[in-house]
């Protein structure tokens, strides 16, 4: 649910970005059109016809409203990654978790669920335990940064909820993660 809406937002934003890129060299055409004169229909049978220029739409940029799920996903990042069979918080993950903690402090009504995930190179029941460790590790880190444990629940999806369908190291790397899902209190 959250993921779907986040994706939708991302695609909206990228559409806006593409539009903006297209607009970067505005054409002088924008000035030329005057109020359309009463145009007499082109004489039938003649080859040349006058085309009325149409104003290119002005650029529209989008950004998530502060405090929304989209704000969290896009401006903070909702997922941190782990090494093979590990559950300790890496340096790159720590940076993201600090941003998450700061955001959670700014919006104290927000409740989150940390979802631990494992890649498919492990067996099912072991991976559930491993995903739990990852979720718990992220929860502890956020608590250490001053977020109340009562705002954080955890769950492990083991290897059952990959975000990358691939079967290579890059896919495995992406699938070893903990996802901070906002489950309530966002604006």
């Amino acid at each position: 649910m959250t993921r779907t809406s986040a994706l939708r937002w991302l695609s909206l934003l990228s559409a806006a970005a593409i539009l903006a890129a297209c607009q970067s060299t505005p054409k002088p055409a924008a000035e030329t059109p005057k109020a359309p004169e009463a145009t007499a229909p082109a004489e039938s049978g003649t080859g040349a016809s006058t085309v009325q220029p149409v104003r290119r739409p002005a650029p529209v940029t989008g950004a998530p409203l502060p405090g929304t799920v989209q704000d969290f996903v896009i401006n903070v990042s909702d997922r941190v990654f782990f090494d093979v069979d590990q559950y300790d918080v890496r340096e790159d993950a720590a940076v993201i978790l600090e941003r998450q903690a700061a955001w959670l402090k700014r919006y104290p009504g927000v409740q989150v669920r940390i979802e631990g995930n494992a890649d498919e190179r492990g067996t099912r029941e072991y991976n559930i335990a491993l995903g739990s460790r990852r979720a718990s590790s992220v929860r502890d880190y956020l608590v250490g940064l001053g977020i109340s444990p009562s705002r954080i629940s955890t769950v492990s999806f083991g290897k059952e909820r990959p975000i990358d369908p691939g079967a290579d190291d890059e896919a495995f790397r992406r699938n070893r993660n903990a996802h901070t899902a906002i489950i309530g209190g966002a604006r």
Partner: peptide
């Protein structure tokens, strides 16, 4: 989390794993 259940041979018990604070 509670997971990995399995019956005892006489069916009187179920063994399983329970995760608490990341420890199963």
């Amino acid at each position: 989390m509670v997971f990995a259940p399995r019956f005892s041979p006489d069916g009187a018990q179920v063994a399983f794993a329970v995760e608490r604070n990341g420890n199963s």
